[in-house]
Design a protein around this nucleic acid. Sequence first.
DNA 1: CCCTGACGTTCGACATCGCCGAACGTTGGT
DNA 2: ACCAACGTTCGGCGATGTCGAACGTCAGGG
Lengths: 250, 250
Amino acid sequence: MSIQSVVRSATVLHLLGAAPEGLPLADLAAGTDLAKSTVHGLLRTLVEVGFVEQDPDTGRYRLGSGIEDLGTAVDPHLLRSRAMNGADSLAARTGLEVRLGVLAGDSVELVHHVFRPDNSPQRLRTGELLPLHATAAGLVLLAFSPVSTVRRRIELSSWTARTPTTRAALAQLVRAAQRRGWAVADETLRPGRAGLAAPVRQRAGVAAGALSVVGPREEVLTPAGEPRPGLADLVVAAADGVSETLRERR
Amino acid sequence: MSIQSVVRSATVLHLLGAAPEGLPLADLAAGTDLAKSTVHGLLRTLVEVGFVEQDPDTGRYRLGSGIEDLGTAVDPHLLRSRAMNGADSLAARTGLEVRLGVLAGDSVELVHHVFRPDNSPQRLRTGELLPLHATAAGLVLLAFSPVSTVRRRIELSSWTARTPTTRAALAQLVRAAQRRGWAVADETLRPGRAGLAAPVRQRAGVAAGALSVVGPREEVLTPAGEPRPGLADLVVAAADGVSETLRERR
DNA sequence: CCCTGACGTTCGACATCGCCGAACGTTGGT
DNA sequence: ACCAACGTTCGGCGATGTCGAACGTCAGGG
């Protein structure tokens, strides 16, 4: 047997879906054959979760942005197009290679790659899959994912001596990323190289992608293993800039 | 106080919204900190209302088309663009003027207008508002609307001697339209002129617009007031054709 | 081949929660 | 000034939602 109040909420949402200009409470009560106070309770909850909005002037209800957002997971191409300028700028300002990754099963998939601006020989890595647990981007995607790390089937393979190979070690890195708002990969994928990443978000809390800088360890981190001064701020600001473009209506 | 099971359903939907590839039940239970059977009950209901779908092979759940449809009320410009070919064709086949209208408050707003194909002098009426109760398109929009006619504030003004001016008379015409799948306006707006309309639907049951033919009464109806043979079929088929284009992914 | 673990699903007891009637304040129209 | 209709609030009550226990299935490992 189905849950009555969830079915009723869906009926209300269907009615609102057919009325882009919104409906008054009385019409929704009539359309659902429920008491006004019953419909009001449903609407109050739907407003609270963002699925419905109420016009403060007229009192009419209509579908909210929260439900419109649901059906639109970020298209990686859209993400890439919105990130290109910010990524180029970040490469210029840091002198490091810049990558944009999204969650792809149990890996990070690189959807955009900006070369290190120094004319050294480099290889384009767009499309490449990288391990979640051994990259800064992967740690960020894990840290700001609705599904907890504990539940994910991640093969904690060893890439260098510094790769986290236990769930406890990984959990610790993920918690640090959650706390700081960015993540560091310190020679966990390749010896002598480090990375720093920040989340690109469409909605508060959940990462749609991860923007990262990657380079020789001494250009990313201090000898103590902390980000070079100002670097984390630059990456976070660039990622926030991309997040802003995702929220724009285009 | 909000309704707990509606909030919990929204949480499940948010989790699924962030995972376009779908999630297993166990992950949803972990992500919501609820018992598996609790989440299962929520999911069963969400599947029933079309907001969630379950992959029969893997058992994983993901957002359903029912919720994606919600956030997309038909844009009148989109409707107009999808209807142009069918409307032209209908005008050619019937020799009558063709109009496409959408619900606009308590009126029909004409979003597309094809002239009667006989070189007679005519005036473009796109953008015009017409009364719901006195037009075939209006009767169709009322008949296939989620909000019952009874609740609508419609001023039953008299346009001709045949305009319905009581709620009972209007309700009768609306019920006939619901039954037949099309509606007739027999000199209810202007003496000597009649119209016939069919619903354009994005989803089953609800009209996104109404496609109609309008002309001298004797070209639309028989002396007995019934549609001329084959005319209703032509209009219904043309409207269904437009409905098909709305369901296409473009 | 067998066993085990993890999955999604079902069922029923029980306590919580959702429903709704009554009443209210506000607003707009006559 | 009055009235009707609106959205909102509150609390009693019983219907419903929650969830632990158990189940069948399936895939993987020994």
